[in-house]
Structures are given as structure tokens and as C-alpha cells.
Design a protein around this nucleic acid. Structure first.
Lengths: 344, 344
DNA sequence: TTGTACGCGTTATCAG
DNA sequence: CTGATAACGCGTACAA
């Protein structure tokens, strides 16, 4: 476990200066005599040379790693986003530092700070923090930022937004077209703009149809985590079923919650989708793995990650005309958890 | 977007030397007059100072970020492992660089190399590469390595192993105890030791019972990805069902595949679990979200990540007596996808 | 208790 | 084409 070779070691062994070594090893395109170049390469290989990015980074002040901040990769939706970012990053020679904030604003700020200390020059963030001081500080330091999933009201920040309102509207509308009149909406806490916008879409569709909305909102204060969203779906379903008359269709705030809705319904012997239809939101791949396969509104997670990464790298490469905003449209994924409403 | 402040800027503004600034800002415990200390702190805050880890790292040759290499976080199993690692890392002031190899040995080697260039001192890896030259090179450089999920035959490497054989045995045994005699095993390609060991466990249990094994192995060459495992489950189920007589229970290589098995069975109108029982492997959280909730053999993913990270940090802190090996035991998770075999 | 000066591994500048 | 040498931001002997 001896010390790794540096360009100095190579220089010494090859009888050249460190400058020359650096020139050939970094593919700088700087002219070096062919014989010398080959010799340096040979010696470097012999010495098992591995370039030290830290030295390089300190010198060039550019890190080639981008920070990704999401609530949690335990939700496959965000896992896909991160995965998309990572793929695109790798193709461009970048690495990724992923951070899970667990919906905790303090943790989000801590992570952003750590990322800054590590000299990240680019950041992709699904921010759930109320404030944005941490983002402004980052931007002030010249860090390029791409906000995904959650819109961030801030100048000089690139956005990949998603039309949540249209998504909520699309879901409700679809249910209405299938003949449903009593459509319940099972919502998480409405503490994020994205969630409120889905609700708005649902509300608009119901109002247009002259129907009474039926909303069940999750209680606050539950710990965030893998199974929480599922359990919330079960709980809200119980609440919705107490209504008189009960809904013939339930639209859930996201797919994980929809799984909970389905589970609770199945547990009660309700036939799916004949008795009650269920609609999700997100379009995670697991939707097609349950029974009945989940009809849902898809938000392109993986593609969103790739797109965000591409945009960020464009910004990093100083492309002034790089696109700084995009808004993704929802798409309906018709599977089998929604049926026509039974004639009354 | 002016240049970030350095300790030199602070030193100048506070009329002290950079040495003093460094001493107070790095909490070195080195004696500094209280008044001076407070002044430095004040000036640092005023200047919005953010320590540059790159400089620190170059100086101290210690990176505080650990590399994590897994097949893909698109599989919730590995997502949980990474999540566990990250949580534990954060608690200890470490950051995590996660890399998805997509089961591609070349990619795995590339990632390990990149990690080395970034001067990671610790590595947690679920290696699927045939060779181990890249790991030996890393170890030779003094990098501490913890192998998880996949056993790696190599000196000086810490292991968190899992008793796959016992898991396979446990699954088959459970099915046997429930009265099943024709138990099919739906396997991925048997190109990894872990998978072969699950098979062995199954085979042992069948042999003990004097029963004929019934194995369907996935074809090679399919692209690895999120839905692949699910689709494989469906396909292998079709193959298993062609047997005469068909199995009354199917044991799947992992939970995702079990979802595919269930889906294919449901699609054919087979009643679950009355007609055919299904058993998974891994114990991902989604198992309880499908219908019927999946009975499975659990491998503690999240805990494994935490444990690996703890072990690694112990090694990094030079704890010579740090545990260098652990073998986790499978646990049966009884849910509802397995029923007693119908009397014949 | 404080300051000076050097070096970590690399690249860039400038002179040959 | 090649080589000295000065940075990059920081921590730390060593000296005062």
C-alpha cells in the first residue's frame, strides 16, 4: 500500500518535467514530441498512475460532479429521476452525489451546504423547503441550478416544471367520461404547490361537471418514509368510504397511495374495478405490476432526470442560449383499475 | 457572483494570519485567544465563508465521501441498500457517490476507476463483475472495501454476506410444509454465485423430500432494467405452466420476478393463492402492496446498507478490531400469497 | 498565543 | 517543443 504515483514520479522516471507529463496525460493537445509522449505514457502505465482529480480540481476550480437533491430514492419515482440524471451524467463524464432530504427542510439545507463545500458547480433539486435562502446562496456562488418536480420561484434558476394542474384535471376528466359522478380525491398534506395544483385540476373538472368535490386530506405529522404513502392511502380510503353515498371512484395523490387505496378496497372485498375505480398519479413502473394494473397519470420521471441533467450540463458549459425552462405535460396511462361507472 | 471568500480573505479582514484563521475555523482545538477567535468567526460569517473541501482534501488526503456501487437503484432492493448507506454516512459526516452498473462489468470497472480518481477512501460494492482486478487495484491503493450482497473472494476485503442457500432452502421448505409437492423455481440466469446458492437451497430441500425439482431459467442476453425482472417472471411462469402436471407453487428468484409470476397467473384467471401459491425473495416493501400480499424471504436491504457503512467507517477510522465480516440470515415473511396445497 | 512558510497534485504561464 | 515555477485553498511544522 505504497503511495500512489504522481506526475512528479512519472517525470522523474521518464526524465522529463512535470509540465510535459501533465501535457500528455491530460490530453491537452499541446504539442509534445511523439517519442516523449509515448515514453511518458509507458512509464505512467508502469507506475500504475491514477490521476488525482482533487489536485486537478483545486487547480481548475471545476468539479465534474453534480449534486442531486430529492426527498427519497425509496420512492421509485425519485429513484427513477436520480437514475436518469446519473445516466446522462455518466455519458458526459460527470459523477453524481445524491442526497435524500426525507422532506426535511433543515436536512435539505444541510445537504446543499455540504454540496457547496464540495465545490459542486451544478445542482439538480426537487426542493420542498419553504425558504430558498440556501438556493440563493448557491446561485450567488455561481452554482447552476435546475429545479425539477417542484417549481421554485427564483431568478436565474432553470426549471423543469410539470403541469400538475393539467394532470389533476386529466385524471378527474377521465373518470367523469367513464360515467363516474362521485369521485373522491385522496390527498397528501397540501403543503406543496405541486399538490395543491393537482387538487385544483381535480376541483376544476368537478366544478365544470357541476359536481360536488369530495376530498380527504392526510393528517400532518406522520413520519416520512417508504411505506408511509401506502398506509396513508389505506387510511384515506377508510375515510372516503364512510361518506354516504360512498364514491364510485377514488383518485389518489400518487401511485404509492393508490396502491394503498387498492389494498384497502381489496381487503374489504370490494371488487376492482367493477365496484370502485382507482386512479393513480406518477406513472411509476410498479403500476403495471399490481392487480388490477393501475390506470394513472404519468409524469416522466426518468426522462425528467435526463432532461434536467442535459440542461444543467448545457448551463455548465456556458451555453448562454441553453434552454432554461421546460414544462412537461402529463399523459394518461390507461390500464385496468378504472371501469365504467355502473348504471344507477 | 464574485469569488468565494478564502481563509486568506478572512485573515486580511481580521488582521490575523491564515494560520490563526485555519485554527479557529477547523475547530482544531489549537489554543487561540478568545477575542481573536470570536472576531475571526464574525468576519467569516460576514464574508459568507464556505470552507473549500477540495483544498482541505488535497492537504489531508482524506475525502469524506464513500463510493457505493450497485446494479441499479431502479430495483427497490438496491435503492434501499443505498438509502441505508446514505443515512449512516450522513450521521458520520460522510457523503455518498452512488453508481449504477446495470450489471455491466465494464461499467463497474469504469466506475471504480472514477471513484479512485476522486480519491474515495472507502467503497461499498455489490460486485457482479467476473474479475476482481479493479478491486485489487483499489485495495492496493489503500481503499477500504466492503462487499455487500455478492460475496467476493478476496483478501483484505470486508464482507457483509447473506446466506442465500439458507434462504432458498427456507422458501422451499415452507412450501413443502404447506403441503406442496410440485414446486417450480423460476430463476434468473445462474451467472452469479448468489443465484446459484438460492437454487442449491431449493434443490436440497426438494431432494430431502424426495421430490423432483422443476426449474425454469431465464434466457441470456436480455437487457437489464426496471421492468425486465417483472417480464421475466411472466415468461417463466408460462414455461412452468406448460409442465404436466403444472406446479402448485412457484418460487421466484426475487420479488420483482414474483410480481411477474402473480401477474401472469392472474391474467390466466388462476386463483391466488388457492390454485397456485407464489413465493418471492428479497422482501422489498412493495411486497405488501400487491394482492395477494407477497409471502417472501427477506434479505434486510436497508439494514445491510447501514451495517456496511458502519463497518466501512470503522475501517476508515483505523479500528483494527473492526468487524470484517458478517453474515446475515434470511427471515421468512409470511403474508398471503401462499396457501396450503389442495388435497389431491 | 501568533505568524511564516511550505507542500498536497495539478495546470498554466512564461521563458527558453 | 520543453522546462521552471507560480498558483489553487488549506493545514501544520517550526519559529517567534
Amino acid at each position: 500500500m505504497k503511495k500512489p504515483a504522481t506526475i512528479r514520479d512519472i517525470a522523474r522516471a521518464a526524465n522529463v518535467s512535470t509540465a510535459t507529463v501533465s501535457r500528455v496525460l491530460s490530453n491537452s493537445g499541446y504539442p509534445v514530441r511523439a517519442a516523449v509522449r509515448e515514453n511518458v505514457l509507458r512509464v505512467a502505465a508502469e507506475l500504475n498512475y491514477i490521476p488525482n482529480m482533487v489536485g486537478k480540481q483545486l487547480k481548475k476550480n471545476t468539479s465534474h460532479t453534480i449534486g442531486v437533491v430529492v426527498p427519497t430514492i425509496a420512492n421509485p419515482f425519485y429513484a427513477s429521476v436520480v437514475f436518469g440524471v446519473e445516466e446522462e451524467a455518466r455519458l458526459n463524464g460527470y459523477g453524481v452525489m445524491a442526497c435524500n432530504t426525507l422532506q426535511d427542510p433543515a436536512l435539505e439545507e444541510e445537504y446543499v451546504r455540504t454540496l457547496l463545500e464540495k465545490q459542486v458547480k451544478g445542482l439538480i433539486i426537487a426542493s420542498i423547503a419553504g425558504g430558498k435562502a440556501h438556493l440563493e446562496r448557491a446561485a450567488g456562488l455561481g452554482v447552476r441550478i435546475v429545479a425539477v418536480d417542484q417549481y421554485v420561484e427564483m431568478d436565474g434558476i432553470a426549471q423543469i416544471d410539470f403541469d400538475y394542474r393539467a394532470g389533476g384535471y386529466m385524471a378527474a376528466k377521465y373518470l367523469l367520461e367513464r360515467g363516474h359522478r362521485r369521485i373522491g380525491y385522496a390527498a397528501f398534506r397540501l403543503d406543496r404547490p405541486s399538490r395543491r395544483r393537482i387538487l385544483e385540476g381535480y376541483l376544476d373538472a368537478m366544478r365544470e361537471a357541476g359536481l360536488e368535490p369530495l376530498v380527504a386530506e392526510a393528517d400532518a405529522g406522520e413520519r416520512y418514509g417508504a411505506g408511509y404513502e401506502f398506509d396513508t392511502g389505506m387510511k384515506l380510503t377508510r375515510r372516503l368510504l364512510e361518506c354516504d353515498p360512498p364514491p364510485t371512484a377514488i383518485f389518489a395523490g400518487n401511485d404509492l397511495m393508490a396502491f394503498g387505496v387498492i389494498q384497502e378496497l381489496a381487503r374489504r372485498g370490494v371488487r376492482l374495478p367493477e365496484d370502485v375505480s382507482v386512479m393513480g398519479f406518477d406513472g411509476i413502473e410498479f403500476g403495471r405490476m399490481i392487480h388490477p394494473p393501475l390506470t394513472t397519470v404519468r409524469q416522466p420521471d426518468y426522462e425528467m432526470g435526463k432532461m434536467a441533467c442535459r440542461m444543467l450540463i448545457g448551463l455548465l458549459h456556458g451555453a448562454e442560449h441553453a434552454p432554461r425552462a421546460a414544462v412537461l405535460r402529463p399523459a394518461l396511462v390507461e390500464r385496468a383499475s378504472v371501469a365504467d361507472a355502473a348504471a344507477e
